[in-house]
Design a binder for these strands. Structure first.
Length: 900
RNA sequence: GCGCGGUUAGCUCAGUGGAAGAGCACUACCUUGACACGGUAGGGGUCACAGGUUCAAGCCCUGUAUCGCGCACCA
């Protein structure tokens, strides 16, 4: 059924956005998933939300563009392909193939596996405009990326320099600060003593400086010991030298403010090439940068022959053993500290000195203000603070990656100037005049230099986020002015996870202002993160992430969507459980069967509801429908998706099915043809509205029923005739409608009382152990005239046979009784009554009324309350007290009757 | 260390100052002509704790505890 309708929608171009349309625009760009990725529950949550927004907007008469696509996910994709080729024995390392051949392999992989996730999104029912699908490595898109690079370079915002960066030794590339995950870890603090040297360069017996370190292997690259200049303990030492064990060379003791005298021994070892803080210190004190850990995470020759080639973790062990053997190791303490891990490779990050490209963020001020002032709204709002905090302490973004898969940096270096392979520091901005000038040594432009044989291109590619931050406009045909860009930028809503607020959201805002002069989106809805039942993040290694396609196969796409929506709290993490999907499945089943019930009814149908023939139940369900329309519409406008789903559930199951359908059977099983036809008209009215309200959540089943029930038949093609997708979103009833059909609040009250009476009557059966399928005699003594149809309803819902309406009835002593504002209901059971049980029931009831009355009276007797509370509230409480008192009397009377 | 969240029924969560709610689970009964992926009735909560504001607090304020998440160059 699902694939049939999906194909139907696509065949009829229902998802395609028309930039020429006169309708107001509504647009969303999808957060592009990794092209070689597969669908996760996170995607399900995220894309269901977008689909709901898109489908709602269409029904509300907007011209909708939901633009889909994927990103190339540099590191992830490249390492997957490389690993696969290695496993197949094709290569040992990508160098074996070379850049060009390797990239061919990646493209091949992308053609084969890319787009799986796109197919999965289709299974989920996503109404994306597939004619506009984009990929971040599409030629036009790549052109945008280069254009932006060149522009920022010329503006002096992009520069190249040798810096200490976060190095991923597994992927062998630099990362941005955002890609480092700090993890608290149990480690050790190794205390190492360095012998002090006298003026003659010889060790002073018994004199040592003790330093504490979490990374003993880096001591091989130490170039100094640092102390705080104000630290009196060590002032004598400053300017002298100490002996670096294992490397056997003297290093100076320097004074630097950075050292905290209160921490550890107050002495710090300084490893300029392997620690960001030490790097800064080394610059200040002109220390050499000795690289002892190479880009692959193994020790270099610089660290000494004993350790060269060892992995950094092996080296740690070896260094500690050696230090211990030579009595340089003083003690080892347990220590909890933070270790940075690569977000991608999950290996510890290595601070590494290398030549990289950096970006000073553009349009920072306007982007910060946009969120602060509410021009861009975050939902939930609290994320605005996280955003603001980050924006106020921006550090330059390391945008170069030592990968092959991605956008290659459009910079060329003149060969003869750099024969040794090192490049000039391009840190200083180019002249702002535009194109590269003849005679330059660095060429940065969209096109390669005219004499390529004299140049070599920079080998690095750009961070994937450096392409995706352009997504909201680069996908719409920028930089060429065109109708799509004009109509749909800025986009309306963005739906994404708070985990990429810095990676993506913030950067898109800056790019939007810098290149479009306008915000990229008006609202950002941040979803929660999906976790398993135990609250753990979904992960491949834990294997706790169910495959959404399995869930779809088992329960259906609508069920998955609804189950997730109903339980996804606003901005809160979501603990996923199959039961939620099961609930969705059950709901779809209920909807299906309720419609089947309608179809099984024979007889004439009226198109128009005749107000004169409306029963109170009819009026009631229309009022409840009106409430549901209001609540769902409001909830969706406020991005309260789970609330909307809950209203859908409540209205349809608890109100329509549980009460209205059951009551309507009194009419439908009766003989009054006109009445029957009118009730069917009400049912059709309610169902046709219900299906439309449900459509954004349950696209497939709502379409199936919409057409199957024939609700499309008399509607214009483009307003629901062809598909429910374009049926009008229900509007709350207006005054004229309410008046015409006699819908007022008194109906609500009357029906509530009736439901209450029926509930209590059923309870009587239960208390007296009468099986629910057993027909039993009830007598109802109404306070006012009681219509025949209402008698039928009572009879049906109480499963009474017979139901006697007797306004004069006097019960025998001990007859179980419900006393209600509508009248008294008796369950006459000759000689069968358990008087004690009945007494117990009524006594309990009486106790409850007493408690309530006491509470109410207490409040109403408080002069402070009666004086200060608003009149409406006061009136409410008075009414409530009266109701409880009335009930108390009724129960009291019943109890007394038992005692007579 | 700073910041942001959470703490309500056995579980997952709603509840944005005026009678403690839903789904699941649980108990009992019921295969009755839409639905057992169902129906009916029921049991179950000192709203983390302590103060405060208010006529009125799950909700507002101040602390505390606890769990989680960010940010931060303490070796």
């Amino acid at each position: 059924m699902a694939s049939k309708w999906y194909q139907f929608w696509r065949d009829h171009g229902c998802f395609v956005a028309d930039p020429q349309s006169a309708k107001p625009p509504y647009s969303i760009v999808i957060p592009p998933p990794n092209v070689t990725g597969v669908l996760t529950l996170g995607h399900v949550l995220n894309n269901t939300l977008q689909d709901i927004l898109a489908r709602l907007a269409r029904m509300q008469g907007k011209e909708v563009l939901w633009l889909p696509g994927t990103d190339h996910a540099g590191i992830a994709t490249q390492s997957v392909v490389e690993r696969t080729l290695r496993k197949q024995g094709v290569i040992k390392h990508r160098d074996d193939l070379g850049r060009e051949k390797f990239l061919e392999q990646v493209w091949e992989w992308k053609e084969k596996h890319g787009g799986i996730i796109i197919q999965q999104l289709k299974k989920l029912g996503c109404s994306c405009d597939w004619t506009r699908e984009r990929f971040t490595l599409d030629p036009q898109y790549s052109d945008c990326v280069q254009r932006v690079f060149v522009d920022l370079y010329r503006k002096g915002l992009i520069y190249r320099g040798k810096r200490m960066v976060n190095w991923d030794p597994a992927a062998r590339t630099a990362l941005s600060d955002e890609e480092v995950i700090m993890t608290e870890e149990k480690g050790h603090l190794w205390h190492i003593q360095y012998p002090c040297l006298g003026d003659n360069g010889q060790p002073l017996p018994g004199q040592f400086v003790i330093v504490a370190t979490t990374r003993p292997e880096t001591m091989l690259g130490d170039e100094a010991i640092a102390v705080n200049p104000k630290d009196e303990r060590y002032q004598k030492l400053v300017g002298r030298q100490v002996w670096l064990p294992l490397r056997n060379k003297p290093i100076p003791v320097i004074a630097d403010e950075l050292v905290d005298p209160k921490f550890g021994t107050g002495c710090v070892k300084v490893t300029p090439a392997h620690d960001p803080a030490d790097y800064e210190m080394a610059l200040r004190h002109h220390l050499p940068f000795t690289v002892v850990i190479g880009p692959n995470g193994h020790m270099t020759n610089e660290g000494g022959a004993d350790f060269a080639g060892l992995d950094r973790m092996e080296a740690r062990q070896a260094v500690v053993e050696k230090l211990e053997a030579l009595h340089y190791l003083v003690k080892i303490e347990d220590y909890v500290h933070n270790v940075g891990y690569s977000e991608r490779s999950h290996v510890p990050i290595e601070p590494y000195l290398s030549e990289q490209w950096f970006l000073k963020y553009p349009s920072v001020e306007v982007s910060t203000q946009a969120v602060e002032k509410g021009d861009i709204k975050f939902h939930p709002e609290r994320w605005a603070k996280t955003y603001g905090h980050w924006m106020h302490q921006l550090k330059d973004w390391c945008i170069s990656r030592q990968l092959w898969w991605g956008h290659r940096i459009p910079v060329w270096y003149r060969k003869d100037k750099n024969g040794d392979g090192s490049h000039p520091d391009a840190r200083s901005p180019q002249t702002a005049s535009g194109s590269p000038q003849p005679g330059q040594d660095v060429w940065c432009d969209l096109l390669p230099p005219p004499d390529p044989e004299n140049w070599t291109q920079d080998t690095d590619v750009l961070d994937t986020w450096f392409s995706s931050w352009l997504w909201p406009f680069a996908t719409l045909g920028w930089p060429e002015p065109n109708p799509t860009l004009h109509k749909f930028y800025p986009t309306a809503d963005l739906v994404t996870g708070p985990d990429i607020i810095f990676f993506w959201v913030a950067r898109m805002i800056m790019a939007g202002y810098e290149y479009m002069g306008q915000k990229p989106f008006g609202n950002v809805y941040f979803t929660g993160i999906i976790r398993d039942k135990q609250g753990r993040k979904m992960s491949k290694s834990l294997g706790n992430s169910p495959d959404p396609l399995d869930l779809i196969a088992q329960f259906g796409a609508d069920a998955l969507r609804f189950g997730i929506m109903r339980s996804a709290p606003l901005g809160q993490d979501l603990l996923f459980d199959d039961q939620q999907v099961e609930l969705g499945r059950n709901f779809c089943n209920k909807l299906w069967n309720a419609c089947r019930f309608r179809q099984m009814q024979s007889g004439e149908t009226e198109d128009e509801i005749n107000p004169a023939l409306l029963t109170n139940d009819d009026k009631w369900i229309l009022l409840r429908l009106d409430a549901a329309i209001r609540e769902i519409t409001t909830a969706l406008a406020e991005y309260h998706f789970s609330e909307a789903a809950q209203v859908i559930y409540r209205f349809f199951w608890s109100e329509y099915c549980d009460w209205y359908i059951e009551s309507s059977k009194a009419t439908l099983n009766g003989a009054d043809a006109a009445q029957k036809a009118n009730t069917l008209a009400v049912i059709d009215f309610v169902l046709s509205h219900t299906l439309r309200l449900f459509h954004p959540f349950l696209p497939f089943i709502s379409e199936e029923l919409w057409q199957g029930m024939g609700f499309n038949q008399e509607l214009p093609e483009n307003q629901g005739g062809q598909t429910i997708m374009y049926a009008h979103w229900p509007k709350p009833f207006d005054e004229a409608f309410l008046t015409n059909y006699g819908l007022d609040a008194s109906v609500d009250r009357l029906i509530s009382e009736k439901h209450e009476l029926i509930g209590q009557g059923r309870n009587l059966r239960r208390e007296n152990s009468i099986a629910s399928n057993k027909k039993v005699k009830f007598i109802f003594k109404p306070v006012a005239a009681w219509a025949d149809r209402e008698a039928e309803v009572l009879k049906l819902l109480l499963n009474a046979e017979p139901l006697v309406i007797d306004a004069q009835f006097t019960p025998q002593k001990g007859t179980p009784t419900v006393r209600s504002p509508l009248g008294d209901l008796f369950l006459p059971l000759e000689g069968l009554i358990d008087v004690d049980a009945e007494k117990a029931r009524l006594t309990k009831e009486l106790a409850k009324t007493a408690t309530e009355i006491e509470r109410s009276e207490q409040r109403l007797n408080n002069p402070a309350f009666t004086q200060k509370a608003p009149p409406a509230v006061l009136e409410d409480h008075r009414k409530r007290l009266a109701e409880w008192q009335e009930k108390q009397q009724r129960v009291q009377a019943a109890l007394e009757a038992l005692n007579r």
